[in-house]
Design a protein around this nucleic acid. Structure first.
Lengths: 130, 130
DNA sequence: GTTTGTGCAAATATTTTGCACTTGA
DNA sequence: TCAAGTGCAAAATATTTGCACAAAC
């Protein structure tokens, strides 16, 4: 009935490109990288692929400084946040009981019914903070 | 030498519009609202005003779901995050020692030199969660 | 009178979409 | 076959910028 994803050359290539990266990348970057490798794929196809994978939970997304969407293959399907290195772009998934508890507590204090939350932490990773 | 802000009719009106709002609003919204009130101000002027106030720390900003920047007058100048009601759009500034500590701990565990972080919590406020 | 702000239109930038064509199952 | 995927170009958004003119100090 709905969305039975098909295996196409384009999607294979896009997925492979994502697999090579540990960092978050934009649709534009994926497209440019593939072009450089000689794979002429429509930019719209890249946008559509990343969007649908994100919607089906296979990709994580964060917003870059200039407001663009950056994607990365999502390791676990559990709830988590990200710790991103501002130097090399490397990103780790994090999940902290303590952090979640703090957030719950804040919501409770203000009598909010918690819906969702986003936490993004930026810094320099072990290798980059000389 | 630098940026000595001037008092203009446009800026007065834009600032007043912000003061009437407890929720986060976009440049477009401020502009539309002023237009409706009969104040014909250039959209670019609204963008420029909000941007500069944000840069000077007088406005907070969050990212809307549809990729736009939303601003609000910032109550305190201290470090804080936001608890936003998804129903009425009302937003509270929050600051939690516990939350900050959790974040520091996470960074320390991964041996990151912490640069910055963003936390946004969404839910329904006391009035909206019937 | 000099510097800063404004308005407009054009330029960017990112992402989406309509549509005809192609392809996978 | 035929629904799903693709490419292209155009549209939709959101925001910025160049420039001539106006306003503030």
């Amino acid at each position: 009935m709905i969305n039975q994803p098909r295996r196409t050359r384009q999607r294979e290539l896009i997925w492979q490109a994502l697999q090579k990266q540990r960092r978050f990348v934009s649709s534009q970057q994926v497209h440019a990288w593939l072009s450089k490798k000689g794979h002429e794929i429509g930019l719209a196809t890249v946008y559509r692929s990343l969007k649908s994978w994100h919607e089906s939970g296979q990709l994580d997304v964060i917003r870059g400084a200039d407001n663009e969407m950056l994607f990365r293959i999502c390791a676990g399907s559990d709830h988590h946040h990200h710790l991103v290195c501002t130097e090399c772009g490397d990103a780790f998934e994090i999940s902290s009981r303590e952090l979640e508890d703090s957030i719950k507590k804040i919501a409770r204090n203000k009598r909010f019914r918690l819906a969702s939350h986003e936490v993004e932490i930026f810094g320099q990773c072990e290798n980059c903070n000389d």
